[in-house]
Design a protein around this nucleic acid. Structure first.
Lengths: 182, 182
DNA sequence: CCCGAATGAGACGCGGGTGTCTCACGAAGG
DNA sequence: CCTTCGTGAGACACCCGCGTCTCATTCGGG
């Protein structure tokens, strides 16, 4: 009988990922519960978004942990990270745009995640794997952009979901130019 | 005395690019006119966004024309396109997210622009300049993502504006991996 | 079996933003 | 000088979504 808070959160994520302007009523309907019950679990829309942000950050941190960014080559670590990001990509895209749209002090968890990813790029540069003429901050933002684009591209059916990892990894690592080596 | 419609449009673009949720009143204030006058020129918020979309598409088409995507190598054409996209990047980022957020029949101008850019990537693939394991549709979406990320990254001060072209061109063409050649 | 807790449905007022209207003002032109 | 037109400021009603509340219902535990 009792509503599974996490289940509601996931269904909200799924809906808002598709339709960022969804109403509290729509979110409730999507979760198969009443609007009143939704409010009992999340004080308001802000609280819901905040909870979604917490969820996203938690999962992203988990993905970062699982990718073990410190181990092996930076290149392989990046591959693992991107592979592990797939389940969170949709929610990530939603949160990134949401954060971009409304200014205001943002969740500090983002800073930590930014730092961890930037550190990976920095490590790759220091080891000589990555080029050094592009800063870690831009590479991080670029990765976000590619992940978001991929999520939307797949969601809208312009590209196949099974290509997610390959699309991002290959473009980010090797670029669009046909390499002589390979 | 008469309000310059185009000037209003540009100031609205500048504002909404920074704060996508800006009120009609804020848009009017930013343009230095009254809300009533704003309504006299644009029937409503929807009409304003639509006009902004028209403007963005017009400028994007102009940038595409100017880049002469059919001439020279696809690589150079891509460089020219990215260089020419800089002034529109902010507005483009706004329109892209706006389009992603609200579903509904979108401006058909986007299809034409998508097609023109995808054709460029296809040309590069056929000429052997670009790799063929990534589809033109994805490459187009990826370019959009990078442009948007760059616009935001610069807007938020994480990266320098003067690097705009270099950041995107280099990452998109060569990727993050340090190439042996060069 | 009964009671308590949680839920769904609906009603209600509120607030912010929108779209419309009126009115006074000032500039440009006859 | 006077008329006309576009404008700014404000008032107003309206709509939509939010947040709160009530009440009947139902599920689950004691």
């Amino acid at each position: 009988m009792t509503v599974d808070r996490d289940r509601v959160l996931r269904s909200a994520a799924a809906l808002l990922t598709r339709k960022a302007t969804a109403t509290m009523d729509e979110v409730a309907k999507a979760a198969g519960i009443g609007r009143a019950t939704l409010h009992r679990h999340f004080a308001g829309r802000d609280a819901l978004i905040k909870a979604l942000e917490d969820l996203g950050i938690r999962e992203l941190d988990a993905a970062l942990d699982k990718a073990a960014l410190d181990e092996g080559t930076a290149t392989d670590a990046l591959r693992r990270l991107i592979a592990g990001s797939e389940p969170v990509a949709g929610l990530f895209a939603f949160l990134i745009t949401e954060n971009q749209l409304f200014e205001g002090e943002q969740h500090q968890g983002w800073d930590r995640i930014d730092a961890r990813i930037a550190a990976l790029f920095r490590r790759g540069q220091e080891s000589g794997e990555f080029r050094i003429d592009l800063g870690p901050a831009w590479l991080t933002d670029a990765l976000y952009g590619l992940v978001t684009s991929a999520a939307w591209s797949i969601q809208d059916g312009r590209t196949a979901g099974k290509d997610y990892q390959h699309m991002i990894v290959e473009l980010l690592l090797g670029g669009v130019r046909r390499s002589v080596e390979k």
